[in-house]
């Protein structure tokens, strides 16, 4: 991932500029557990259009973020939050009209955020993996400012990348997940800094400890 970044390659996080892609993202968000929205965020960015070279016309409003709202919090943790209904556009029939934070935290609600909403969510943080894994190691905190990073022609940052890496990891089938180790975006830099800590960074595992495909 990081190497890609440095080479100036395109990081694809899905794009709403393509109708099919939009549908795919929507289905991603509504298929798991039947009608319940996916307990995850989906980031969308027009930056991907670089891969589809014919698509240089990206509307600035095309970018979206689908967020699991069950772990939102304000910076000071106490500020009461109320989102206008129009910010809450869950896929499917999930009803969130007039939802306040208590409602949002009690159920998994998928929120569609547009980059223009960054201002409204100022001071808010979104944590992934969400609620219930509070002490999860290496979880990502996405701030409202990070929403701007998926704006067309903006650069992505480590938070967005790491969020998506974790999102991928969480959505792999269990048997596939065993075969991969997911580093965060800081790993490469650390790796090139000093070698001693690398084993620690990989959760104490060495390469040999990962089951090799050749054995099967």
């Amino acid at each position: 991932m990081l190497a890609d970044l440095q080479d100036g390659a395109v990081i694809s996080i899905g794009s709403s500029s393509d109708e099919e892609e939009e549908k795919r993202m929507q289905s991603l968000c509504s298929t798991k557990d039947g009608d319940g929205p996916l307990p995850a965020w989906v980031l969308g960015t027009g930056a991907e259009a670089g891969a589809a070279a014919n698509n240089n016309n990206i509307s600035r409003n095309n970018n979206y973020m689908l967020l699991n709202a069950n772990y939102m919090k304000s910076e000071d943790g106490l500020q009461p939050l109320r989102f206008s209904e129009r910010l809450l556009k869950p896929p499917g029939s999930h009803q969130t009209d007039g939802a306040d934070l208590a409602d949002l935290m009690s159920k998994d609600v998928t929120v569609e955020l547009h980059t223009s909403d960054a201002q409204k969510f100022k001071g808010l943080k979104f944590v992934y993996p969400p609620n219930g894994e509070r002490a999860a190691v290496g979880r990502v905190e996405v701030t409202a400012e990070d929403i701007n990073r998926i704006e067309a022609e903006e650069f992505l940052n480590d938070t967005v990348i790491d969020f998506y890496i974790q999102w991928i990891e969480k959505h792999l089938p269990e048997e596939s997940r065993q075969r991969y180790y997911f580093f965060n975006s800081f790993f490469y830099k650390k790796l090139t800094e000093k070698h001693k800590v690398v084993k620690k960074l990989a959760g104490g595992k060495t390469v040999e400890e990962f089951e090799s495909d050749d054995d099967e």
Binding site: L2, L5, Q6, G8, A9, V10, I11, A47, A49, G50, A53, N55, N56, I58, R134, A135, V137, E153, E154, F155, L156, N157, D158, T159, I161, S185, F186, K189, K190
Partner: peptide, 24 residues
């Protein structure tokens, strides 16, 4: 405590990574 840290543990402060590609 949540992270099982003990006395003298080291926290790394790293600068935000920013990058990408402009289609244009």
């Amino acid at each position: 405590r949540e992270l099982d840290m003990s006395d003298g543990d080291m926290v790394d402060a790293v600068i935000e990574q920013l990058g990408g590609y402009h289609p244009s």
